[in-house]
């Protein structure tokens, strides 16, 4: 039952995105221009930038895009339509479908991002599969945490400010874990030696998703 509702809602999100493509185009353009601005302002010859800076800069770009992309999850649809959803589907289905859909978007954006980023800024990553895995776990974590925060921020009056103020401190534990894992990936350390970090990240993702599922019904009831 719940799975069914989630499937329908995710399909609805994808169709909405597909019919008015400007949102996803906007995100891609935002990604490209941010990366290009970074490239220009560092005047980076390829491989000239410090690997730690390379890594941190990339995650910051992804973080800002995530806040922008996910921040509008609850504000883009009208109040009447939200009441309509409220009356026909369970709140858990709403939050899980939004998390799932946002995770899909973030995975897509971050993979396109890493391609474009390595194109202009060079790619000093030693263990690429592990780096991509950290991107995958990061996208899921960003999506889960920020969707919940977006739900909270959408209730306030000045939701854009609220979104950024609430999301940045709360995303830091995840970001620190991600920076640690992706740094090991850059140094070319094998997957076997990073099981702990991956398990920690996956556990954090699961905790946030479950917590969102428990708490969201209280926000949704308004």
């Amino acid at each position: 039952m719940l799975i069914n509702e989630i499937r329908v809602l995710v399909k609805k999100e994808i169709q909405m995105e597909w019919r008015q493509k400007y949102a996803i185009h906007g995100l891609l353009l935002y990604l490209a221009s941010t990366i290009f601005v970074c490239y220009l302002s560092f005047k980076a010859k390829q491989q000239a930038i410090n690997p730690i800076t390379w890594n941190t800069l990339f995650w910051l770009i992804i973080l800002f895009i995530a806040v922008n992309a996910i921040g509008k999850s609850f504000t883009q649809e009208s109040k009447q339509r939200n009441i309509f959803y409220y009356s026909i589907v369970s709140p858990e289905a709403v939050i899980y479908s939004k998390i799932f859909y946002n995770a899909l978007v973030m995975i897509g954006i971050s993979f396109v991002g890493i391609l474009f980023y390595s194109w202009v800024m060079g790619n000093p990553v030693g263990n690429l599969p592990l780096y991509l895995l950290s991107l995958l776990l990061g996208s899921i974590g960003f999506s889960a945490t920020l969707t919940m925060v977006a739900g909270i921020a959408a209730q306030g009056e000045n939701s854009a400010t609220l979104m950024s103020v609430l999301s940045f401190p709360i995303i830091i534990p995840l970001l620190l874990l991600l920076l640690k894992l992706s740094k090991s990936a850059m140094d070319g350390i094998s997957m076997q030696e990073n099981w702990d970090e991956m398990a920690n990240l996956a556990a954090l993702d699961v905790i946030v998703i479950v917590l969102s599922g428990i708490l969201f019904p209280y926000i949704w009831r308004h």
């Binding site: 306030g156 709360i170 209280y218």
Partner: peptide, 25 residues
């Protein structure tokens, strides 16, 4: 930021509900 959430909600019940959810999170 919890303080900010509280001060940004005009309605009493809504303020209480949202800030308590945020507090647990």
């Amino acid at each position: 930021a919890y303080g900010l959430v509280r001060s940004s909600m005009p309605d009493e019940q809504q303020k209480a509900r949202i800030s308590n959810v945020y507090n647990i999170f």
